[in-house]
Every structure is written in structure tokens, then in C-alpha cells.
């Protein structure tokens, strides 16, 4: 049976996040030929709706309101519930982002339905859809199905590939007017600490440093390599605890979970706490002076050596590769 699927798009600083397109792809699979409706919330977001059509949304619904400029669970909750009320979807897909993690349990609770969080893959289509998600800090996986009610899932960024972009595809766009009232939370200020440019949880390439980086300045060569590869810089808990970098960079069981195409671990021993945050990356490169370091056990490629020698050489070599390409 085909299903009508509602997918939430997410914008950050006026640009749609990739997970918006990934959610459309997930929605298509669950819909089994049904309609995929993308929802866009904000104070001024209409201009972003055309992109959603190009990535496969059949329809786009926008809700614009001054109170939706910043995310609050009350504001976004009221808006999305109004859309659900109008559309009566049979499945819902959010990104497993800060916003999605905060909002989805509230909506699921309100709808009295189940919620499968942090899905990394979907098997089957329509009613036969089975969701795969990591558990035990990524050391095991479970297959989950929804027994009854709306199929509501959140998808981990970077795991479900978006559909191929079709420039001439146009989705029907409509606006829904929702009265947003009674916000119980007032956002006073947002202090941006995360790295400029590439979002760590969505980055295709992550260069992470551990205790071996030795100091705050020691992160400089990692940043240069990240810049050349268009990636983001991350860190182990050890490096954060030692005050070499901000906790916003921490990857691990506490901290962020990342699944980039390429993960380069520099001076990271590979404690289980760290592996929990990155072991599902597609390709892992380890650079460490200690040939016995645990990180080599999960690495696809390893270089035993001093990161301060290896990283700058890698940066040069990648620069050459880009020039020749």
C-alpha cells in the first residue's frame, strides 16, 4: 500500500541542511509510490521551497510566522501539528538533528504514536518498511518495525543518500497560516561556537585530533587539511578535557556522533568512548605514533608516525591532487 509521507525540512542560516533532502529520499521509500510532502517552517522560508522540489518532494507546505524565526518546541510543535491535522500523513520523517531530537518525541507523544529515532537505513517499502538503527553506542544494531499507528522516524544525517537532483522538477508550494501562541520558552541569545562553514555532523570529511595534538595550536595543521578537503575538524574527549579545543568539537559517546565518508583520526588512541562516535564512518584513516594504538583496529588505512609530520604532507599531497584534477 502506498503512503502519504510528511518530511520536515530544516534550514540553518538561510540554507537548507542536507538532511532535508535525505528525509525526502527516506520518505519516498516509505511512501511506496505515495505522496511526499515537505514541510518548511520559519519566519521567511518560501524562497527555499524550490530546492525541495528538485530533490523529489511532490509538494511543499510552508508555515511562516515571526515566532518561527528561532526554534522552540512550542512554536514548531504548533506549526507541525497544524500541518499534520490538515494533511493526515501516514508516515513522518524528521532529521535526527538537535531540532529533530527535541521536537519529535513531543509530536509522537501528542499523536500517541511510536517513534523510531536515529535511523541509519531503511529496508523494504511501504507497510513492509523495517528501520535499522544503532544501539549500545553503535556497537550493535537493531531492526525495528512499527506495529500500529503512524510510521514516525528520525534519520541520522549523512546515512541515507538524497535522490538525484532534477533541475526541472517543480513541486507545488502552498502556505498554511498558523497562529503561534503561548511560547513558554524565550530564546535570549545564541552563541555560535561550532566551526565556521562545515557542520561537523553533516561533514563528508572529518579530521579529528586527540591528545597527540598536544595543544590548542596543535590543531592548526588539522584545520588546514580540513580546509583543503572541505571538511570539518573534530576532537576526542581527551583533547577536549585537556582544553586543546572546545567541547563543541567532541566526537564520541558523550559528544557528537558522525558518519562521514572519510574520517581521519590524528593522535587519537581509539578509546571505546571515542569509537562510539565515529566507528560507522565509511573510511577511517588512523595516524598515530603508537603502532599498538586501538584506533588501528578500526582503521581502513593506517600510518604509524608523528601527526605533525604526516598531516602537513597529506595537506600538500591533497592540494596537488586538486590541482591535477
Amino acid at each position: 500500500m502506498s503512503k502519504k509521507v510528511l518530511v520536515l525540512a530544516e534550514a540553518r542560516e538561510g540554507t537548507l541542511r542536507n538532511v532535508s533532502y535525505e528525509a525526502i529520499a527516506a520518505g519516498k521509500q516509505i511512501s511506496n509510490g505515495g505522496e511526499v510532502v515537505s514541510v518548511l517552517l520559519g519566519d521567511s522560508v518560501k524562497d527555499l521551497s524550490t530546492e525541495l522540489g528538485k530533490y523529489g518532494a511532490d509538494r511543499v507546505i510552508t508555515v511562516e510566522h515571526p515566532h518561527l524565526k528561532q526554534y522552540t518546541s512550542d512554536g514548531y510543535g504548533q506549526a507541525i501539528l497544524a500541518v499534520i491535522e490538515q494533511e493526515k500523513p501516514e508516515a513522518i520523517v524528521f532529521g535526527h538533528t538537535a531540532l529533530g531530537k527535541d521536537l519529535s518525541p513531543k509530536i509522537a507523544s501528542k499523536l500517541q504514536v511510536g517513534l523510531v529515532s536515529d535511523v541509519t537505513a531503511i529496508e523494504g517499502e511501504g507497510d513492509a518498511a523495517v528501520y535499522i538503527r544503532p544501539i549500545y553506542s553503535g556497537k550493535a544494531f537493531e531492526k525495528v518495525k512499527v506495529k500500529n499507528g503512524i510510521e514516525f522516524i528520525t534519520i541520522r544525517p549523512n546515512n541515507i543518500a538524497p535522490l538525484t537532483k532534477e533541475e526541472n522538477k517543480i513541486a507545488d508550494v502552498s502556505a498554511l497560516s498558523v497562529d503561534i501562541t503561548n511560547l513558554r520558552t524565550i530564546i535570549k541569545e545564541v552563541v555560535r561556537k561550532s566551526s565556521e562553514g562545515v557542520d561537523l555532523s553533516e561533514a563528508k570529511v572529518v579530521i579529528a585530533g586527540g591528545r597527540g595534538v598536544k595543544s590548542e595550536e596543535g590543531f592548526a595543521p588539522l584545520k588546514e587539511l580540513a580546509a583543503v578537503l572541505g571538511g570539518a575538524v573534530g576532537a576526542s574527549r581527551g583533547a577536549c578535557d585537556a582544553d586543546y579545543c572546545d567541547y563543541s568539537l567532541q566526537i564520541g559517546q558523550t559528544g557528537k556522533v558522525v558518519t562521514p565518508d572519510l574520517y581521519i583520526a590524528a593522535g587519537i588512541s581509539g578509546a571505546i568512548q571515542h569509537l562510539a562516535g565515529m566507528s560507522n564512518s565509511k573510511i577511517i584513516v588512523a595516524i598515530n605514533k603508537d603502532p599498538e594504538a586501538n584506533i588501528f583496529k578500526v582503521a581502513d588505512y593506517g600510518i604509524v608516525g608523528d601527526l605533525f609530520e604526516v598531516i602537513p604532507m597529506l595537506t600538500e599531497e591533497f592540494k596537488q591532487l586538486k590541482v591535477n584534477a
Binding site: E142, V144, Y301
Partner: peptide, 20 residues
């Protein structure tokens, strides 16, 4: 419960990486 776990499994064992 609205959802049901069908199966729990370990990720496929990674082949030993290549140390250059």
C-alpha cells in the same frame, strides 16, 4: 508498545585495515 524490535545484531566485522 507501538514499535517492535525484530532483531539485534552486531555490525559486520571489519577486515583488518592496511597499515602502510
Amino acid at each position: 508498545a507501538k514499535t517492535e524490535t525484530l532483531e539485534i545484531y552486531l555490525p559486520p566485522k571489519k577486515e583488518a585495515g592496511k597499515v602502510l
